[in-house]
Simulated scan of single mutants.
Amino acid sequence: MNAVTAPLGVLVVDDEAPARERLRDLLGDIAAQQPTRIVGMAANGHEALRLIEAQPVDLMLVDIRMPGMDGIELAQHVARLAAPPRIVFVTAYDQYAVDAFELNAIDYLLKPVRAQRLEAAIAKVRASMPVARDSLDRIAEPRRHFSVSERGRIALIPVTDVLFLKAELKYVTARTVEREYLLDESLVQLEQEFPERFVRIHRNCLIARAAVAGFERDEAAEHWLVRICGFDEKLPVSRRQWPAVRAALLGNEPGSGVK
């Protein structure tokens, strides 16, 4: 069997069992034209990531609207893998049918999925078009998790657990109360993605608004320090950033939280 007709390993991801079963049946219906084999059925994004770690996956058929981790966020995490599977989105909500889904890398199927349309999508996948990570970032809502590759596995860190983000050489360190994680992302991109959650206090540091316990003056260094909830380390605020930090975190109450 040549590479064109070799079965693709497919992971079906949908929070509704009937939808998963329909896709499984449709794949069987078009097997003569587009051979596939089901390698897993997942009810949510977290379960899908565990299955991807356990076995090779060529193609993911992913619902967009799912609780806990939606399909777009799942695709963002998958795109960071060394050899990411191809992704075809499947959803009942046609408002997601925007120009970004017309990119060669990603197809978009509207429920109820028709066999002919699914066959065409798999044909596009066989052209070995890579997932475009930048297009996912443009159309996605802010992520709920950061993804980190550790010992060949994907570790998910809830964004709400991160106290601050600090640029370290070509990586960004995400600090939680328990430990540090290395993110292969830029501080600028993270600042743009999470403007409501993180505030820049220094050229190499963003701090979570919710993590700020207050400020105190470092008279020796002649700058302000941020006190962090549940964390002993205090972070310096650059002179350049202090007016913006003060406005963002203290508003019109100059004395609030400052000693």
Rank of each mutant, 00 (worst) to 15 (best):
11 L>N: 06
11 L>W: 08
12 V>L: 10
15 D>F: 06
16 E>V: 02
19 A>V: 02
24 R>V: 11
24 R>C: 13
25 D>H: 12
29 D>L: 14
30 I>G: 01
32 A>V: 08
32 A>I: 05
35 P>C: 03
36 T>N: 08
40 G>D: 13
43 A>V: 09
44 N>Y: 06
46 H>C: 05
46 H>M: 12
47 E>D: 13
47 E>C: 00
49 L>I: 14
49 L>F: 08
50 R>T: 12
52 I>Y: 02
53 E>A: 15
53 E>Q: 15
54 A>M: 04
54 A>W: 02
54 A>K: 07
56 P>R: 12
59 L>R: 01
60 M>I: 15
61 L>H: 00
63 D>S: 02
63 D>R: 02
65 R>M: 11
66 M>H: 08
66 M>I: 05
68 G>N: 13
70 D>H: 05
71 G>R: 03
73 E>P: 15
75 A>M: 05
75 A>K: 03
79 A>D: 00
79 A>K: 03
79 A>E: 00
81 L>C: 03
81 L>W: 02
86 R>M: 08
89 F>K: 02
89 F>T: 05
92 A>M: 10
96 Y>K: 09
96 Y>R: 09
96 Y>W: 11
97 A>I: 00
99 D>G: 08
103 L>E: 11
105 A>P: 03
107 D>A: 14
119 E>C: 15
119 E>N: 13
119 E>S: 15
125 V>R: 01
129 M>Y: 00
133 R>G: 03
133 R>I: 03
137 D>H: 03
141 E>F: 00
142 P>R: 13
143 R>I: 02
144 R>Q: 14
144 R>Y: 06
145 H>N: 15
147 S>D: 13
152 G>H: 03
152 G>A: 08
153 R>W: 04
159 V>Y: 10
163 L>W: 07
165 L>H: 07
168 E>Y: 07
169 L>M: 09
174 A>G: 05
176 T>Y: 07
176 T>F: 04
177 V>S: 04
179 R>F: 00
181 Y>H: 15
183 L>A: 12
184 D>L: 11
187 L>D: 14
188 V>R: 14
188 V>F: 08
192 Q>H: 10
192 Q>K: 11
195 P>H: 12
196 E>D: 15
196 E>N: 14
198 F>W: 05
198 F>V: 13
200 R>I: 10
203 R>W: 08
210 A>L: 04
213 A>L: 07
213 A>M: 05
215 F>K: 02
216 E>N: 12
216 E>F: 09
217 R>G: 00
218 D>I: 04
221 A>Q: 12
223 H>N: 11
224 W>S: 07
229 C>Q: 15
232 D>Y: 00
232 D>P: 01
233 E>A: 14
234 K>E: 06
234 K>M: 10
235 L>E: 06
236 P>W: 07
237 V>Y: 06
238 S>H: 04
240 R>L: 09
244 A>V: 10
245 V>H: 01
247 A>H: 07
247 A>L: 09
248 A>Q: 09
248 A>C: 06
249 L>C: 06
252 N>F: 00
253 E>Q: 10
254 P>Q: 04
256 S>W: 07
257 G>T: 03
257 G>W: 05
258 V>N: 01
